[in-house]
Design a binder for these strands. Structure first.
Length: 854
RNA sequence: GGGCCGUUAGCUCAGUUGGCUAGAGCACUUGCAUGACGCGCAAGGGGUCGGGGGUUCGAGUCCCUCACGGCCCACCA
């Protein structure tokens, strides 16, 4: 027992044990195990675009608790870690940190020295390969920072199993996945109206949009009706008037019913547009009749598609109005010269500038009615964007969605923890529109495995892609050459052009389970780990990551990518304000919290966040966790100091009913904690364990203390030692998923190997040791002792105060249980005489020894 | 506008199929150095279980309804 320190402490346990676990390969995955012996986790790859905050630590801790539990249940846990280095946010971060921006037209500069954090200086343009290199460097540093933090938090990740969402393996899987979908016509290339961020110059998917309430203005414009009568139309986007292709009203709206099928003429531009009916038109909005433009919003796209309208686009990718010639095909006007004159005022301007100008033009021509009316309305933005999204037509790659019934069936097949999170998925599936645009006009990301032929006149046919061979993957179209072509033909007439875009983040991360399981390059691993057991993730990305992953596995594997989805809540500030961004040294910076409270304490706090429930950021709970960890150290020191035996489990030595009773109590706890963990309810497992542990310390340890030291002879002492050893082992194991450092520390005092590789406790084994003893012996004895303590406390006397006599009144059954532990009660309470009286209700009379006169 | 979750002590939360005087921790009060722990131990005060109906012998627990908070979604005229 020499290994037990005199003054156990939590200080430094993180550094000690993470190094030891690393050296011993404690969490190394054993890929020789069969599928049934493996528990595989599709860990969320944290994006390296931002700082980790305490919310990340919290949800990853939840996953680690489950991983540790499964490992102790005997599963070999496949617990990899990925890094999401894909996406616009990474590019923005790299731009900020290196002071550069990507200009694909520039050549590679092998000696590039990025200026670093630019402050107010203009970013330096660099080539695409240079920019990609810089992305790689920034990511490497961030990955290292994340690794440090995750390790210190005790995450039992196998660090030999890491992956990136940009890299050969992810690229290979993403490209293969797309080629296979294209072959089955489940993906396609098309020119299509697309939501477009004019600042980032890229398409944005439905899932990345958000509505923001911003101010707008209603303008009331005069169209000419079929008889030349004025037809007043209200709009917030007057600058799109030249793009107007129809007017629309609700089919049941009597005011406009007579006009359906007739034509109206647009003000300023004299374009004849049909007056049409559609159920989406809202009679209560504006004047009840709306102009359809190509395109002002997603409803315009719906109308345009469903009503088969003309296409007259004016907004180009940079958010400015493009030049057009009125009078040419598609741009008919009753007065082309006037239309052209008016349009020249708008062409080249931004949407906002054009709006201001056209309002003036309309007013000068007396084509408006009344003053513009300010309103506040929801407008679609890219979630990180600063200007409203526009809709432009461009060439994009799309993946078709499976039919909704099939998707809903997959949702039912999946086990959701908690179950109600399924509803979010179902709502999202129900609201799907169009197909999934997987194209982003960015530089850093997974390239498409495609090129386009250039005809003899130098025109690129963007709708006739030349696809890479599957065997050649991964490819980079900007440096690799398509089958049947030579490098000299790049960007030449009669040659080819590379696809210039990269894939949407989700086109890659929707294959995270396949990527990490070795779908493309390790069929043996894939067979052992896929479909995976668990996808842990946050609820706000059910509609993206989870949904897209289900779509991909449905197509590619005709099944689910995992059996279980554990959805975590998010962390909120007790003041209901948003948590600070933890830019460093903020009170909620995980590194600072680790320093202050220790990893076990933070994990304890995190464990309070039940699956799917939000959790308050609460340092007070971290203090509680820290005390619990210290208590574990001290209680263990005491138990082991009495000679608690590693020969625990010797049923013959358990002579004392109190000891067996305690083990019966513990058996019930093990059963409950196990059932809770099987439901991914780590929070309940901890809560029950913790509650029993404190009672164990306050009551059982006090009751057994003197006997354990030998006051009642060797037989009683042996019973206590066996019970204490068994209980300690059991409790440490129950705490191990939550407090990996403190429990491992104690384990090292008396056992070999790692507690995290030791088998989970067995309720039946404990019940056998308890030999059907009544678990309430401990409770009855503790209740009696509690009354004695109360008497001492109320008399303001020390707990060591001798008690002359105690009279316990209780039912015969309970008195019989008390009798089983009466000597321990007398000893713990310093009671000289303990009498029992049969009665209806529990009552205790305590006669303290008089205080010594001072 | 639709959906989901929540509303239990000052704070953070338990309360499993409705059942004996509603629990824990923190905080607070009062004590106690007790052969593990003063980062400790003991005791104590503190709640019309968001409001209103209903079902029931009995409801924090089931049903209806309203309010508030949060989240997700939705069609920018």
């Amino acid at each position: 027992m020499s290994r037990i320190p005199n003054k156990p402490s939590l200080e430094g346990l993180e550094a000690t044990w993470r190094a030891r676990w690393e050296a011993d390969g404690t969490y190394r995955f054993d890929r020789t195990k069969a599928r049934a012996e493996i528990f595989s986790i599709d860990t969320p790859p944290p994006t390296v675009s931002g700082n980790l905050h305490i919310g990340h630590a919290c949800s990853y801790a939840h996953t680690d608790m489950v991983a540790r539990y499964q490992r102790m249940r005997g599963k070999d846990v496949f617990y990899p870690m990925g890094w999401d280095d894909n996406g616009l946010n990474v590019e923005r971060r790299v731009q900020l940190l290196t002071g550069t921006r990507c200009d694909p037209s520039l050549p590679y500069d092998p000696d590039l020295q990025p200026p670093g954090q630019p402050g107010k200086a203009r970013p330096v343009p660099v080539s695409r390969p240079n920019f990609q290199e810089l992305c790689g460097q920034v990511i490497e540093q961030l990955e290292h920072d994340y690794f440090e933090l995750w390790s210190n938090l005790g995450f039992s990740v196998d660090w030999t199993q890491t992956y990136r969402t940009v890299g050969p393996r992810a690229t290979h899987a993403s490209q293969l996945g797309l080629l296979r979908l294209l072959r089955r016509d489940l993906a396609y290339r098309a020119e299509s109206p697309t939501l477009w961020d004019v600042d980032m110059q890229t398409a944005v998917a439905q899932a990345e949009m958000q509505d923001r309430e911003i101010p707008g203005t209603y303008h009331r414009l005069r169209f000419d009706g079929p008889n030349g009568d004025p037809l007043w139309v209200e709009t917030t986007r007057p600058e799109l008037l030249p793009a107007c292709v129809a007017l629309v009203a609700h089919p049941d709206d009597d005011r406009f019913r007579p006009l359906f099928g007739a034509k109206a003429v647009t003000p300023l531009f004299g374009a004849e547009v049909p007056i049409v009916a559609h159920g989406l038109a809202d009679p209560d909005k504006g004047s009840g009749i709306a102009m359809i433009c190509t395109f002002g919003d997603t409803t315009d796209v719906t109308w345009w598609r469903e009503l088969g309208l003309d296409l007259r686009t004016v907004v180009q990718r940079d958010g400015r109005l493009r030049p057009v010639t009125w009078g040419e095909p598609g741009w008919a006007s009753t007065d082309p010269a006037a239309a052209q004159r008016h349009y020249e005022e708008l062409a080249g301007r931004t949407v906002a500038q054009a709006q201001a100008r056209i309002v003036e033009l309309l007013a000068e021509a007396s084509l408006t009615d009344g003053e513009p009316r300010p309103i506040t309305h929801p407008v679609k933005f890219w979630e990180n964007g600063s200007r409203p999204l526009e809709i432009v037509t461009s060439h994009q790659w799309f993946i078709r969605y499976p039919d909704k019934d099939a998707l809903l069936a997959r949702g039912k097949e999946l086990a959701w923890w908690p179950d109600f999170m399924r509803v979010r998925y179902e709502n999202w599936v129900g609201g799907l529109q169009g197909d999934w645009n997987i194209t982003r006009q960015r530089f850093f990301g997974v390239p498409f495995p495609a090129w386009y032929p250039i005809d003899g006149d130098g025109n690129v046919d963007y709708l006739a892609p030349i696809l890479a061979d599957e065997a050649s993957l991964p490819v980079d179209a900007t440096t690799d050459v398509p089958p049947g072509y030579a490098e000299e033909q790049r960007n030449r007439a009669g040659g080819f052009a590379a696809d210039p875009d990269v894939m949407d983040t989700w086109a890659t991360s929707s294959l995270s389970a396949q990527i990490v399981s070795g779908w493309v390059d390790d069929p043996d691993l894939f067979a052992r780990t896929f479909p995976m057991d668990l996808r842990p993730q946050a609820h706000e990305i059910i509609r993206t990551w989870l949904f897209y992953s289900v779509v991909r596995a449905h197509y590619e594997h005709d099944g689910l990518p995992w059996a279980n989805a554990a959805i975590s809540g998010f962390v909120f500030d007790p003041d209901r304000k948003k948590l600070s961004k933890s830019a460093g040294n903020a009170p909620d910076d995980p590194a600072v919290l680790l320093e202050t409270y220790g990893a076990d304490a933070i994990r304890y706090w995190a464990a309070g966040g039940r699956p799917g429930m939000d959790l308050a950021f609460d340092p007070a709970q971290m203090k509680v966790g820290r005390r619990l960890a210290i208590k574990v150290l001290n209680a263990s020191r005491f138990a082991l100091g009495t000679g608690a035996d590693t020969a625990a489990g010797d049923a013959g030595s358990l002579t004392e009913p109190l000891d067996r009773s305690m083990l019966a109590w513990l058996a019930d706890l093990v059963a409950e904690a196990t059932a809770a963990f099987d439901r991914f309810d780590y929070a309940r497992a901890l809560e029950r364990t913790e509650a029993l542990f404190w009672s164990f310390c306050d009551d059982y340890l006090e009751l057994v203390k003197n006997r354990a030291y030998g006051s009642a002879g060797e037989v009683g002492q042996a019973s206590a030692r066996t019970a204490l050893g068994t209980a300690l082992e059991t409790l440490l194991k129950l705490f191990a998923p939550f407090l990996p450092f403190a429990t491992e520390e104690v384990w090292s005092w008396w056992r070999g190997g790692s507690i995290h590789r030791a088998p989970w406790p067995d309720a039946d084994g404990l019940r056998a040791l308890a030999a059907a003893e009544d678990p309430t012996v401990v409770a009855v004895a503790a209740a009696t002792l509690g009354e004695v303590r109360r008497a001492k406390s109320e008399a303001k006397r020390s707990m060591r105060t001798p008690v002359a006599s105690v009279t316990v009144t209780d039912t015969p059954d309970r008195l019989a249980l008390l009798q089983q532990a009466v000597e321990d009660v007398r000893s713990a309470g310093h009671i000289t005489e303990l009498r029992t009286v049969e009665g209806e209700a529990f009552a205790v009379e305590v006669e303290l020894q008089p205080a010594e006169p001072r």
